[in-house]
């Protein structure tokens, strides 16, 4: 069992989900520019927005939230395409066309053409 940078965040979300009326609103990624990326889980808890952040180096693989929220799968697939982050057990290819689109266009330095 490998350890991921966002294990703590996912645990927190799962815990809140079992107690309260929680909906995953969106997942935001920000390229910090110093080799680190930031992941922000935005939750709707009883009608108010809360966010759970975590930061990690850009080449690390992350755990997927899709076991808690099925709707998270597409959000993660989008992030794989646009930010070039890997999620365990999730494949990309949601938005970009292999062969012609650039990889990870939202990074500060995109990773070139597939």
């Amino acid at each position: 069992m490998s350890i991921h940078a966002n294990d703590g965040a996912i645990e927190k979300i799962a815990e809140r989900q079992s107690l309260e009326n929680v909906r995953l609103a969106t997942i935001i990624t920000v390229d910090k520019g110093d080799g680190n990326l930031e992941l922000i889980y935005v939750l709707d808890v009883n009608g108010a927005l809360t966010s759970i952040n975590c930061e990690f180096p850009q080449d690390q693989e992350l755990a997927s939230l899709s076991s808690v929220f099925a709707g998270a799968e597409n959000m993660e697939r989008e992030i794989i395409d646009l930010m070039g982050i890997r999620f365990e057990g999730i494949r990309g290819g949601l938005f970009l066309e292999p062969g012609s689109s650039i990889i990870a266009p939202l990074r500060k330095q995109p990773l070139g053409v597939k």
């Binding site: 609103a25 969106t26 935001i28 709707g71 799968e73 597409n74 959000m75 939202l106």
Partner: peptide, 19 residues
């Protein structure tokens, strides 16, 4: 801008079609 992220409603609603 450093980052602008737009979450749209259809993004989650269309995915629910598979259910």
């Amino acid at each position: 801008l450093e980052r602008i992220k737009v979450k749209t409603p259809a993004f989650v609603n269309v995915a629910a079609l598979s259910a």
